[in-house]
Structure formats: C-alpha cells, structure tokens
C-alpha cells in the first residue's frame, strides 16, 4: 500500500496524451464540433454565427455559474427560473413607474435593476436559510420557491405582460461593446470571476470541501451554514441578472414565461461541463463549454436541416452520454 505511489507516476508518464484527453474531454468535444462545422456547415466562420451562438448560451451560462457553485456544495437549485421571473417582473415595475415613480429615467433603471437582482439574491438566500436552518434537502427546499416564486412574480404583475421600449435599460440584452453583445461580456466576466474564486480563494476551497465531505468540513472549522447561504444567494443573484437579460431581449416581461425550464438547461450545462453532480469537484469554465456544446450541437443540426424536435432527442442523449463518460472517467 505504501508503494502505491510509484507505479502511479510511471503510468501518468506513459499515458500522458490519454490522460490529457480524458481530463479535457469536454474541451476536445467542443473543438471537434467546431471543426465539424467548419468543414460541413456553410457560412460557419462568421462573426454573426459566433454572436448568435454566444447570445443563445449567455443566459444559461449566467445561471449556470450560480448552479455550478450550488452543485459544488452537493446541492441543487430548482428555483432559478422562478427567481429569473421575479427579477424580470420587479425591474419593469420600478422603471416603468408602476410600483414607484422615479422621474429620472437613468436613476429609475438603475434602481430597478439593482432592486430586482437583490430581490432574487434575497430569495436565493432564503433557499439557503431553509436548507441550513431546517436541514431540508436542497431539491425539496428549492422546490418550494420553484412553485411559489413564479406565483409571486405573477401576482406582483397580476399576470400581465409588461411591454417596454427603453434603450436605457435594454442595452443589457441588445447592446454591444466593441461589437460584442453586452450579455456575452457579462457572461465571460462572471465565468472568469467564479472560476478564479473556485480555484484560488478561501470561499472556493470551502465550497469544494463542503461538497466533498460536509461533516469533515464542519469539523475542520468551515462555517458550513454561512457558505451554503452565500452560495444559494449567489445563485439567486445570477438568476436575477439573467432575468434582466431575458426581458431586455424580449422587450417585455411575461412572468409566465421568463426563465421557464431554465433550471434544466443550467443543470444540463453543468453536467455536460464535467462538474461532479454529487459535489466536491466543479469547473465553471466547464459549464461554459458544456452550454456551448449543447448549443452548438443544436445549431449544427438545425443548420444542416434537422428538425428542432429531433435536436431535443440528441440533446437528451448528449446529457446521458456526458454523465456516463464522467462516471467512467472516474472509475
């Protein structure tokens, strides 16, 4: 047992390429997909294609960042879609002057956006509070807000559509900086911060320790409850931002539709990206790559004349395949 280390080092030397491939399987898959498209899909290499695909995944990845952290602690957050709806309902209520009247439009938009995102963060914190205070399983605790949250959004807008045409706000979904869509920039920034936090910071280490072995983490002095509340709060904040992006793109807020099914897209991106669903190992860049793979597969199929419904079947198979490969890579 003590000499277990020596044969291991030999192994890693000889199978270096194989190890690299399995370690970066998602990246390899993404590159393969891109290569395929470069050869077979017409007009693939264009700024427009890039932008289309990146804008498609932006909201999923923004939510996926929070979801990755939650899953890294061994939890799950089903309520992300509902929190998007809440955020998407609150912001227009403020900047359209329905709930409160602020005459200066820039101020109104700023207040609306901040309040909306903070509200979503507060609901996320509530998820964390339920989970840590009452020791309720995350899947059930967040189910509460999944059901009630959309109701809250619907009630607060009476179920009405809130249409608007407001450049001061819609830059977040439609604007561009240096030719890059703003939402894509937000996505990249969030991914970069979260990836850095996971790798280098105390908070990241604490998240992974809790996901890896919660009891041991507590006995090593990690404030488990506090870390978890923050993680769910972050998931809420991310959902809040994503909610704003979605309503800005749509030029309207519909509490019945904003973020519908988002929890599944985000979880799928996390799973395909290689984060361990049982917690303890996570990669935020993986989630980005995962979302891109899912999107690009769909794009490839559609661009080559395949029905969107069939694309769903392929996506289903992709999720299963990714998780299955992950399991095999470990054992």
């Amino acid at each position: 047992m003590s000499n277990a280390a020596s044969p291991k080092t030999i192994e890693t030397n000889t199978f270096n390429l194989m190890a690299f491939l399995t370690k970066h399987a998602t990246l390899v898959a993404l590159l393969a997909l891109i290569a395929f498209n470069v050869v077979f899909t017409k007009h693939f290499i264009s700024i427009q294609t890039l932008n289309v695909n990146l804008t498609q995944v932006a909201t999923i990845v923004i939510v996926g960042v929070g979801m990755t952290l939650v899953i890294a602690t061994g939890g799950i957050d089903l309520s992300v879609g509902s929190m998007m709806a809440i955020s998407g309902a609150i912001a227009p209520l403020i900047f359209l002057g329905t709930a409160v009247h602020i005459s200066e439009i820039h101020l109104a938009v700023a207040v609306g956006m901040i309040v909306a995102v903070l509200a979503a963060g507060a609901f996320g914190w509530f998820n964390g509070w339920l989970i840590t205070r009452f020791r309720i399983q995350p899947i059930i605790a967040t189910l509460v807000l999944f059901i009630a949250g959309r109701g809250i959004a619907q009630v607060s807008t009476n179920g009405n559509l809130q249409p608007f045409k407001l450049g001061e706000f819609q830059w977040i979904g439609l604007g561009r900086w240096f030719g890059v869509p703003v939402q894509v920039i937000i996505m990249v920034v969030l991914v970069a911060i979260a990836a850095w936090v996971l790798k280098r910071s105390l908070f990241g280490r604490q998240i992974l320790a809790i996901g890896g072995n919660e009891r041991a983490a507590r006995l090593a002095g990690i404030p488990v409850a506090r870390v978890k509340r923050w993680v769910y709060c972050i998931s809420g904040l991310c959902s809040g931002i994503a909610g704003l992006v979605v309503i800005a793109i749509n030029s309207s807020s519909d509490a019945n539709l904003v973020g519908l099914g988002m929890e599944l897209d985000a979880i799928a991106a996390v799973a395909v990206g290689g984060t361990l669903l049982s917690g303890g190992r996570a990669t935020v860049t993986g989630t980005l790559i995962g979302a891109l793979i899912i999107q690009l597969v769909r794009y490839t199929l559609l661009a080559n004349g395949v029905n969107d419904d069939v694309a769903k079947l392929v996506k289903a198979a992709l999720i299963v395949l990714a998780v299955w490969l992950q399991r095999h890579g470990r054992s």
């Binding site: 992974l208 890896g212 072995n213 041991a216 006995l219 361990l276 303890g280 190992r281």
Partner: peptide
Amino acid sequence: LEGIIPDM
C-alpha cells in the same frame, strides 16, 4: 466519514 475530503 468525518476526516478526509476524498476528492481533495
């Protein structure tokens, strides 16, 4: 159960 974090 209460000591190691196996994946770390």
